[in-house]
Computed example of a mutant assay.
Amino acid sequence: MKRTILFAILLCSAFAFSSEGKDTLLVGYTPAAPFIIEKEGGRLEGINVWLWKRVSEDLGLPYTMVRMNFSQMLDSLKAGNIDVCINPLTITSDRSKEMEFTDSFYASHSTIVVAKKSSFQKIKQFVQSFFQLNFLRGFLLLFFILMFFGILAWLFERRKNPQDFRPGAKGLWDGLWWSVVTLTTVGYGDKAPKTRMGKITALGLMFAGLLFVSGLTASIASSLTVNQLANETADFSDFKDRRVGTVKSSEADEFLRTHFFKNVQTYDGVVPGLVDLKKRKIEAFIYDAPIVRHRIKKDSSLQQLEVLPLKFDVQFYAFGVNKDSVELEQAISLRILEIIESPQWQVVLSEYGLSEL
């Protein structure tokens, strides 16, 4: 009962606002799918569009939609040139000093978009793994072991087994060949030691090879794994020294600057930033996760981009209202609360591929 009375009071406040000299509200927006989707002919749809239509119809608020870029829209709202902004604005303390916020209707977070690696880049990365210092050390040690036992076997066998271990430089090659065949357990049988010391040398090579090869295999696997992990991004701070992009005057823009990102390129919207990322003019694009995911999913020209599994900078979305329209903000907020508590809100979110955070 009390809630009904409060709603009636706020509804009267909304009507009072309309009668004070502003019969039609100016509502600013900029396309931000899936919240605001601009179709052919200027027709609008999306989560926020649906929500605003419900609120305005229930409160009896006449309005005119005004398309702006994001930065211009915020400036206009702060200056009182528009009455309401229906974009998913992140509630921040700085913004709250210059505009009113309705109650939040959705929680999100920022993420990072990067260009997918081409097949050539993946092959190049794999080949480079074999030139890591630890990897090369292992192979040099292997070569030393093969040479050591090959020369040792040749020294013991060259007089009593000259048909397998020939004298001179050819014999050194025979020893190396024998040690490689023995260590790899190929076992061609074309060369074999016949002296006691030659056979002891062969036993030493077998046992040393058994221990060393297992260690070398582990070293190779470790080197490849470490190199792969080094090329994967585990945190947003890995991009602090890279050239990244975001939307001008957005919460992501403020987040990057307060976290000391050194090279930030700003754009008027999401699409120009993603296009520059595709052209590799920037190394990453950082923005609200649901917006960039939806854009990449729906735009076939952006399939070369991928969203990293990173979540940071939790954000609470709300409508923005002119600072001088407190009563209007309260009326809108109450109606938003009632709508998002209804089962229909979950249906609308799922229709656009979203769910509560």
Rank of each mutant, 00 (worst) to 15 (best):
M1S: 12
M1R: 08
I5P: 01
I9G: 00
A16E: 06
F17V: 04
F17K: 02
T24K: 12
L26G: 04
P31Q: 07
F35S: 04
I36A: 02
E45Q: 13
I47H: 00
I47M: 00
W50A: 00
V55Q: 11
V55A: 12
G60Q: 05
G60M: 06
Y63W: 06
M68I: 00
S71C: 04
G80K: 04
I82Y: 06
D83Q: 03
C85R: 09
N87W: 05
P88L: 01
P88Y: 00
L89I: 05
S93G: 01
R95E: 01
M99K: 05
S104G: 06
S108T: 14
V114K: 03
K116F: 04
K122N: 10
I123S: 02
F130V: 02
Q132T: 13
L136D: 00
R137G: 08
F143W: 09
I151R: 10
W154P: 02
F156T: 11
K160M: 05
K160E: 12
N161M: 07
P162T: 11
A169F: 13
L176W: 11
W178D: 00
S179Q: 08
V180A: 15
V186F: 15
G189Q: 05
P193V: 12
R196C: 10
I200G: 07
A202D: 15
L203S: 14
A208W: 09
L211A: 14
T217C: 10
A218S: 13
T225S: 10
V226H: 12
T233I: 14
D235R: 08
D238G: 07
D238L: 04
K240D: 00
R242Q: 07
G245Y: 04
S249R: 09
S249C: 02
A252F: 02
E254D: 07
F255P: 01
F260H: 14
F260N: 15
F260W: 09
N263H: 15
Q265A: 09
T266Y: 03
Y267T: 12
G269K: 08
L274D: 04
L277Q: 11
I282T: 07
I282V: 13
F285L: 08
F285R: 03
I286V: 15
A289D: 12
R295E: 14
S300V: 11
S301A: 15
Q304C: 13
L305N: 07
E306P: 10
L308K: 11
P309L: 07
D313R: 06
V314R: 14
V314N: 14
F316T: 13
F316P: 01
F319G: 03
N322S: 15
E329G: 13
A331G: 03
S333G: 10
S333F: 10
R335K: 15
E338I: 07
E338Q: 14
E338M: 11
E341K: 13
P343L: 06
Q344W: 07
Q344G: 00
Y352C: 08
Y352T: 04
E356Q: 11
L357D: 10
